[in-house]
Simulated assay, not measured.
Amino acid sequence: MSKTKKVAILYGGRSVEHGVSVNSARNIFEYINKDLFEPLPIGISKTGQWFLTSGVTKDIEQGKALGLILDAQRPGFTLLSSGDRIKVDIIFPVLHGTDGEDGSIQGLIKAMDIPMVGTGVLGSSMSMNKIVAKRLLKEAGIPVTNFVTFHYTEKDKISFKSISEKIGVPFMVKSASLGSSVGVSKVKDEETFKTAVDEAFRYDDYMIAEEFVVGREIECAILGNHPPQASYPGEVVINSKYEFYTFDAKYVDPDAVKIELPAKLEPAEAERIRELSVKAYEALSCEDFSRVDLFLTQDGKIYINEINTIPGFTNSSMYPMMWKERGIGFTDLISRLLELAQERYDRSKRIERDFNSALKF
């Protein structure tokens, strides 16, 4: 890539994971190879306004207000104060959760016809929705835990008894399309069940109840396309004061978890985890990079928990740590992701968008 590549780093967004996005983008802005790329931080406020910021900051609205140029012949952004056009060569979305990781931003960028890092519309939307993802993984023969699903219109009919008979107690209740353990609860009885259902529907119209798995929390980083590569797995060892991997355990409490890199696994276990992670990545049409979260039980069973198509890049995030353990540092990893995005965009130009026929219009 030439030294003139301008990279728009999208961060913030209208999501409960807004703060996590800011922290991830801050690291990408800091570690991107500035000899090769010129980073342009573009923050999206919690109300959905876009701003060009001088650096990655939580005070997004202090930046310069932007408009989007939805013209595939000359796409980009415009400063609302002056009308000046800002052209970018590639976009790196670092948006977690709703309106960032679910295919919506990916569709907008595709319409602008600008190269973009990460999974496109199809893979993003399928992976973000835990219900759709689990159904597709199950159809592909990839092991997932037992689950049941509900829409908000069924809220008053959801029964603790019927769910517990199907998947046992305790079980997990989750919003269908969120990450970072937001809208997630562990249910042990009727009282915790009602609170969990209210919490799940607070953030989504769909909820999923999943079988609780007693096992090790394993993660695997995937990088590349056709074929993708899997890192060696890592393990998240959670402090016993937490009953599961909560938001606070992930991002707030520095003593909540211990990271094992590489995870202490038998060679056959590690290889099976890597193999299943790649299969899940391909089954959900992921591109460029993702982090696969898995469970490993004491009797050796492996279950795919979920896939994160825009994994965190914070100081405590497993995705960059797993590649660092393999010898790929933060800066080189960012460069590789930008190269993958450009290569994929260039390949996409072979696809015809016009069809000559006898149709008159």
Score class of each variant (00 low, 15 high):
residue 4 T to H: 04
residue 9 I to E: 07
residue 20 V to W: 03
residue 21 S to T: 12
residue 32 I to D: 11
residue 47 T to H: 08
residue 59 D to A: 11
residue 59 D to E: 14
residue 67 G to F: 06
residue 71 D to N: 15
residue 78 T to V: 15
residue 81 S to W: 00
residue 87 K to R: 15
residue 89 D to A: 02
residue 94 V to W: 05
residue 96 H to G: 09
residue 98 T to V: 14
residue 106 Q to W: 02
residue 110 K to M: 06
residue 123 G to L: 04
residue 123 G to I: 06
residue 128 M to W: 04
residue 129 N to G: 04
residue 132 V to A: 13
residue 135 R to W: 02
residue 138 K to G: 10
residue 144 V to R: 10
residue 146 N to V: 02
residue 146 N to C: 05
residue 159 S to F: 08
residue 162 S to G: 00
residue 169 V to I: 13
residue 176 A to V: 08
residue 178 L to T: 11
residue 182 V to T: 07
residue 184 V to M: 12
residue 185 S to P: 00
residue 199 E to Q: 03
residue 203 Y to H: 15
residue 204 D to N: 12
residue 207 M to E: 11
residue 210 E to R: 08
residue 210 E to S: 07
residue 211 E to I: 05
residue 216 R to D: 03
residue 218 I to Y: 08
residue 229 Q to C: 04
residue 231 S to F: 01
residue 232 Y to C: 02
residue 233 P to V: 07
residue 234 G to P: 03
residue 235 E to P: 05
residue 240 S to R: 12
residue 240 S to P: 01
residue 241 K to H: 09
residue 244 F to L: 11
residue 245 Y to H: 14
residue 250 K to F: 03
residue 251 Y to W: 15
residue 274 R to W: 02
residue 275 E to I: 00
residue 276 L to A: 10
residue 280 A to M: 05
residue 282 E to Q: 15
residue 309 T to M: 01
residue 335 S to V: 12
residue 342 Q to F: 02
residue 344 R to V: 09
residue 344 R to E: 14
residue 345 Y to V: 04
residue 351 I to R: 11
residue 354 D to S: 11
residue 354 D to V: 13
residue 357 S to L: 09
residue 358 A to Y: 12
residue 358 A to W: 11
